[in-house]
Design a protein around this nucleic acid. Structure first.
Lengths: 236, 236
DNA sequence: ACCTGAACACCGTTCAAGT
DNA sequence: ACCTGAACACCGTTCAAGT
């Protein structure tokens, strides 16, 4: 099986070590994230995967945050924007907007730490622009344009991103459950004298499935965007 | 200057090394955060500050996330809840709610990384409960109780926390500015063929001061909470 | 129960040197 | 311009051993 002439280990394991390219690196990073989670998509671990040293990656990304931003943009390619056009079907604009945002949330749900990084480093890749464009398109159909629409996009995406960061799975389902139980217990155990309203409303504070809450939150946001006074950015 | 009998270095520098206690550790951690930022509030750095080894801290906190949660709760003591009671002044409930949330945002603005950690590990300390209790009190005055109020608290705090995580200062003002410029440039440079709406609305997407946006967002949320159908947690 | 030193298994980033 | 080895300055967490 092994060749007569010994080959360096690294060459044998990765027969055709590909030249480094930006897209190639990102593709490898995405694969690594899928198999081991974003936590493992570190400069060092990724370099190892690419059969090189960590310093090499700094030619393509200024830092780890930029690397993660590139991974995020790649992942955003999975968001379903198929319902953007009014011609796409019988759904009204509100439902189509909800579909797009739900798809976005679901994509990020698998990678909450990516959602967290999106909250810090604002994305601005091509796929992200596609998403923003889609949201603006649907909002325009709902009669929203200009400042109101621009700010609405921001608020809607912030909500969706934060929700994925908060509730996303893959954060060791055990931990999440444990934490939730602890919170529930804390609320239920609130003392009548100091936190009477919490004590009374403990169940309502933790009620509802994530889906029910999400549906409600999107209703809140859209109703609010439609009824709040139009923003005036020039004033700020 | 130096005593005749040599004293171990550590004892000389911290004359009365205090015994470790939960509150004492948190107080030291808060001080460390104020002087060097949350990034430096690591188990190792904190242990060094306390003149001990990192392993000792695991008696008090199961992990770094718990430590940061304790720091956050301490910091929440600074949130101004003085306007909670209707008797506090002439302000209507909406304005009082906005005051409380703005105070919360401002407290977290100085420590965006703490806000980020709050988004992941749900807080449940005493000060956090005080904040929730205050919000429930003001919402009740606006006629909101039960499920609607409970879910509203969640959504309002999520918005506030995410906003602080996103826009908080202290994240190297330079970096933030640079990132913002890059985003603006990206939006302005959107290609007419692929992202026409972004190209048209670029200025509206980035317009407005943080304060103007915050005011608008709170309007949106409150209007939405008041007009969206009451949630039904039992259904979810 | 509380505290510790030492170890294990990692990190990001920079820099001088190579091609 | 791109790539690299090596180094610097850190991390979180566990464990066996002490008090």
């Amino acid at each position: 099986m092994s060749p007569a002439t010994p080959t360096p280990r690294s060459r044998r394991e990765r027969p055709a070590k590909p030249a480094l390219t930006g897209p190639g690196i990102v593709a490898t990073a995405v694969g690594l994230m899928r198999s081991e989670g974003l936590e493992r998509v570190t400069m060092r671990r990724l370099a190892q995967e690419l059969d090189t040293g960590p310093a090499s990656l700094y030619v393509y990304f200024r830092n780890t945050a930029e690397l993660h931003a590139a991974v995020l943009d790649e992942l955003l390619g999975e968001v379903d924007l198929g319902v953007t056009a009014a011609a796409a079907g019988p759904l009204g604009w509100r439902d189509r907007l909800a579909r797009i945002l739900s798809s976005y949330i679901e994509v990020l749900y698998e990678h909450p730490s990516l959602a967290r990084s999106a909250l810090v480093t604002r994305p601005r890749g091509e796929r992200y622009l596609d998403l923003v464009e889609a949201l603006l398109t649907v909002l325009a159909e709902g009669g929203m344009e200009g400042e109101r629409a621009g700010w609405a996009v921001d608020l809607l995406l912030q909500y969706a991103t934060a929700t994925a960061a908060e509730h996303g799975t893959r954060r060791q389902a055990d931990d999440t459950q444990e934490e939730w139980d602890a919170l529930t217990e804390t609320l239920r155990g609130a003392r009548q004298d100091r936190h009477p309203r919490i004590a009374a409303a403990a169940d309502q504070l933790v009620s509802g499935s994530p889906e029910a809450r999400r549906t409600w939150a999107l209703d809140v946001l859209l109703n609010g965007i439609l009824t709040a006074p139009a923003p005036d950015g020039a004033r700020g």
